[in-house]
């Protein structure tokens, strides 16, 4: 009987917690509507601190930050939301808008990159799983049935291609985890030619620019790629974004 009690208590506690989260989200939305953006930011931030990680929170927080003129933080949260919902038009539009407002050059992906970033990391795993199940089913049919085996073999190409494509997609996201993205969060960020204090300036980075790490130096320098150029930045100028 004790375990039944424990389950009931746990269910009640979780329902209270869910109610509290719903309440915070609603309050944040009201604060945003009333133009109290700083309060909305605090509320959305508290949800994230509670361990929640929905793209909707990141997106709404990005909006609140944008309205509060905190462009780097807005871009950071739009990007985080984009990792989960890469095809969401609202997220794509707002990220694009915020980058434009920051005067940052947006990375224009190549054809393959654009295709592979159509689906999120989880979605690619889902596609791979579906491909795997379909392939297993078709192989079962090939084994069991004695007719139209040639056709079934040809059909196996579909899940095979799905698995191959999802592997590339998965690798693309893994690449982003290995070489994370950063947002320039301070003004006067200037990439240098080398990871040495006093090295010559290479190019300037606008606040809010989204850069990708290409190398790291143990002394706190990060080589970033921006607009086709690579330069070294002190990590105090940038905030990590990647999943």
């Amino acid at each position: 009987m004790r375990w039944i009690k424990n389950i009931i208590v746990a269910l009640l506690l979780s329902s209270f917690s869910v109610q509290a989260q719903d309440e915070s989200f609603r309050k944040a939305q009201t604060a945003y509507d009333d133009g109290r953006y700083a309060e909305a930011i605090l509320l959305y931030d508290s949800l994230l601190k509670d361990g929640l990680n929905n793209p909707e929170i990141h997106y709404n927080l990005g909006n609140a930050c944008f309205k509060d003129s905190d462009l780097p933080k807005a871009i950071l949260h739009y990007r985080k939301a984009w990792y989960d919902l890469p095809r969401d038009p609202d997220i794509v539009a707002n990220l694009h808008f915020a980058l434009n407002a920051a005067g940052a050059i947006e990375h224009s992906p190549g054809f393959a990159e654009r295709i592979l970033f159509t689906l999120s990391y989880q979605e690619w795993i889902l596609v791979a799983t579906a491909g795997y199940l379909l392939l297993s089913f078709l192989l079962l049919l090939i084994i069991i049935s004695k007719r139209s085996r040639r056709l079934l073999f040809k059909l196996c190409l579909i899940p095979g291609l799905l698995i191959l494509l999802s592997t590339f997609g998965w690798l693309q996201w893994r690449q982003l985890q290995a070489n994370p993205e950063w947002v320039v969060s301070k003004t006067e960020a200037t990439a240098l030619f080398g990871p040495v204090d006093g090295s010559t300036a290479h190019f300037k980075l606008p606040i809010g620019a989204l850069v990708q790490q290409s190398n790291i130096d143990p002394k706190g320098w990060i080589e970033v790629e921006y607009d086709g150029k690579k330069g070294w930045l002190k990590n105090e100028y940038i905030t990590p974004v990647s999943p």
Binding site: L52, N54, N63, F66, P89, N94, H96
Partner: peptide, 19 residues
């Protein structure tokens, strides 16, 4: 694009946690 950002998203149906 328009002159402003797109409005907020509604509350998610399921809360996902980092943990």
């Amino acid at each position: 694009l328009g002159r402003d950002i797109v409005y907020l998203k509604p509350m998610p149906t399921v809360w996902s946690r980092t943990t």
